[in-house]
């Protein structure tokens, strides 16, 4: 028999049961490949998928923007105009702390979404609060780094390398700061509006955003700090 006889939602339910890991095949019987899963047979995707996918596209475009700043830094790396080189301004101990803070905040963000899926408001809030605290620690460490550099005359206008450095690292810092504001907003919304569908959609997007920031930071601490420290 064919799934085309059934309404789409029921065909989907059947597929979820018969093909829980979405491998596109049935465990037994002579039925064809599973319907749905992007093959256009089950109607438009749900709003949850469309929201998440749309945000994914935005994040990729954001990463493309970051790649321009990375390219600028890579090109300007030696353009120090007689000023400090990149290895002069890197403090690996602080970078290690920043990396730990951001990685752990990403982890706690993932845990908060596990709690969201379990519809547990308390633990969602606890993990979101931990995420916020670690994100704040990251931003403060970076602010301290910038303050120390500027106090010693290492400013963005000193050389092409420093312009690219402050541009790239600062852009990421701005992203984390705005993400922190978003996080505070989400905590308030979870508290007062509960796990409504649209709130959960926003939490999905926030999770994606926060993890993407961590991915960008991997690029920064590798290309700017670690490779810079060794040169």
């Amino acid at each position: 028999m064919s799934d085309y006889d059934l309404p789409a939602a029921i065909a989907t339910l059947r597929r979820v049961r018969e093909d829980p890991n979405r491998l596109g095949r049935r465990g037994h019987g002579d039925a064809g490949p599973a319907l749905g899963a992007g093959h256009g047979a089950t109607g438009p995707a749900s709003k949850r998928v469309i929201v998440g996918y749309g945000f994914w596209i935005f994040l990729l475009s954001d990463i493309v923007m970051f790649s321009c700043f990375f390219a600028a830094f890579a090109v300007q790396r030696e353009a120090t105009a007689g000023g400090p080189t990149i290895s002069d301004i890197v403090d690996l101990r602080r970078v290690a702390l920043e990396t730990a803070a951001l990685l752990l905040s990403s982890y706690s963000c993932g845990l908060s979404f596990a709690a969201t899926n379990a519809r547990n408001r308390l633990w969602t809030q606890v993990f979101l609060a931990i995420t916020a605290a670690l994100g704040l620690a990251f931003v403060l460490l970076e602010a301290q780094e910038f303050y120390d550099l500027v106090r010693n005359g290492v400013t963005p206008q000193r050389s092409g390398m420093l312009t690219a450095f402050f541009g790239l690292v600062g852009l990421h810092g701005v992203h984390v700061s705005i993400g922190g504001l978003w996080l505070a907003t989400m905590m308030a919304q979870v508290q007062f509006k509960g796990f409504r569908t649209e709130i959960v959609h926003r939490l999905i997007c926030f999770n994606l955003f926060w993890h993407a920031l961590d991915i960008v930071w991997i690029g920064i601490f590798t290309i700017v700090y670690l490779i810079g420290a060794g040169s």
Binding site: G36, K47, R48, N117, N120, H211
Partner: peptide, 17 residues
């Protein structure tokens, strides 16, 4: 949660915490 067919990133349907 919602009824879902495809998955968006960061989101996996019908899975436990």
């Amino acid at each position: 949660l919602d009824k879902r067919e495809d998955h968006a990133p960061g989101d996996v349907a019908e899975e436990s915490a």
